[in-house]
Amino acid sequence: MAQYGFYVDLNACIGCKACQMACKDRAGNEPGMNWRRVLEVGGGDWQKVGQAWVPDVFAYFVPTACHHCSNPPCLPVCPTAAISKDSNGIVKIDVEQCIGCHYCEWACLWGAPVFYEEQGIVNKCDFCKDIVDAGGSPACVEACPMRAMEWGDVEELRARHPEATFQIVPLADPQDFQPNALYKANTAAGERVGTILNQEEI
């Protein structure tokens, strides 16, 4: 069984949010409902250089969506068995089965499931399954003007980008859920730890 995943080069990403918009467009989501979100991370401080204080700040962007975990926490807790993994490792929600109990929202570390008030259901990134099955690429990957994103079998992505990792600030520690997203760390931050700057937006 294949396991699809995403790779994002955080040095190339400029935070234009084209991926977010393409995802929203394809999913038909209303404003404020995002399956893919772009986190704006920043930090830094003033540094004394000689007699002067100069700003020494950094910022980078982290596009994130459902990571289609190999061991997804949302799947076993769902009371309706609406969540499943398909033969490509895509974690899907059967919206006809879902009753909108929010339990998957409570379980996901990265806030991927989104509740739809009007329909009374939860839904999330489905890896653009219909497009991928027809031989295309997920909308987010296709839309990226910087070509910062890639998709494919996660083992192939890992082989192509051996330096890539999931341990990126500010993403929560993956525990044993095995998220299938790989990031090439942004080098601007160095050893410094930033914080999410667009908390309200995401």
Binding site: C78, P79, T80, A81, A82, Q97, C98, I99
Partner: peptide
């Protein structure tokens, strides 16, 4: 769809 809650 409450009865779906007994599925898992």
């Amino acid at each position: 769809r409450a009865f779906n809650m007994l599925s898992n």
